[in-house]
Design a binder for these strands. Sequence first.
DNA 1: TAGATTGTTAATCGATTAACAATC
DNA 2: TAGATTGTTAATCGATTAACAATC
Lengths: 212, 212
Amino acid sequence: MSSDKKISSAVIRRLPRYYRYLGEIKESGIQRISSNELSNRMKVTASQIRQDLNNFGGFGQQGYGYNVEYLYEEIGKILGIDKTHSMVIVGAGNLGQAIVNSEDFAKRGFIIRGVFDNNKELDGRKIGEHQIMMSDRLPQFIKDENIEILAITVPKDAAREVARVAVEAGIKAIWNFAHTDINVPDNIVVENVHLSESLMRLSYNMANHANQ
Amino acid sequence: MSSDKKISSAVIRRLPRYYRYLGEIKESGIQRISSNELSNRMKVTASQIRQDLNNFGGFGQQGYGYNVEYLYEEIGKILGIDKTHSMVIVGAGNLGQAIVNSEDFAKRGFIIRGVFDNNKELDGRKIGEHQIMMSDRLPQFIKDENIEILAITVPKDAAREVARVAVEAGIKAIWNFAHTDINVPDNIVVENVHLSESLMRLSYNMANHANQ
DNA sequence: TAGATTGTTAATCGATTAACAATC
DNA sequence: TAGATTGTTAATCGATTAACAATC
């Protein structure tokens, strides 16, 4: 059920933000909103909002605007968070723990099914309700439990090997926090979170007085 | 010393990645590299590399290429990481701890000078070598210690107030991990890290079999 | 019906890629 | 000098904004 036309990544980058705003607008009890009003809140052009949404179909109604709840639901579907996704974390350091202990991801349907590390001292220790497993059990676990997403929070030197093993075991997507690019086959999705690069951009902007 | 021409944010987004690759190439002992060879490694066009770099000046030499060490240093300067930057963390949860305990940021010159939280049970507890301070001390600390960067790792409901107080106290930049946009004056730099949005993009791409 | 606002086409703007003269 | 490769201009491609007819 792949889409016909290729949606630009610039649009995809904006979708979660629409989703977040619409969620908040919905919570505040507002039932309909025009692209113009949404544009005021989000500081993007109304034109861009209408263009972006129309990549996926006509969600609005002339003379009325958009039904907030409906649009929120539809964007959720587009993002694939109307279903749950199974995830494992490899790397039980601070960052791994932060992800495990956060409620935000489970709330969006990303269910953590296992936490792995290769430090033997951590074997069996608990993070939240998860008992840390040794990394050599990772491939079998991915297969047995049908894990879709691998979050990599190990140091960069270990990251590629973890990715390789997981890909071989049939993982579908990798959420990579290690400071390295990982090379995987084209059909595997990789989403990078490079915190130190983010901080360098901040540093650049600070030196150059730029606006956000 | 602001730059004359405005550099596009697309270029800035790529700079840290150039920096990372050049650092690794330097470590591997290679002394010179052509845009073509770098393009092969990084999977971007050589043309883009040359265009990007030329926004900041001619770092290469016809017939030779680029001196790896020199280019690495220069990009470091452009990014402003030839100097150190003082930073505080507000929010001593898992994510805050992860940032404090990471060596990566200090390595790039981002020095953590204080960790704050408003949970009284944490008052005085230690994270690494940092004693957690209560958030009411934040504004005075920012002034006294000349803090440039505020990392916000508190839940979204508290984030805006923390930002407001810090801006009033003279903070220059905010590294925001809370799931909300924070509105600050134009001269304050904001760099957002919205992890759940990252995960939603991953989810979208997974559903649509896209390449990275 | 009149007013509002979308969906969509057209115009503009910006970013990427290609090409090549300059030059090491 | 000949070969290599940059710096930079020109061409292309894509994304954003503007405009407005369609329509609720």
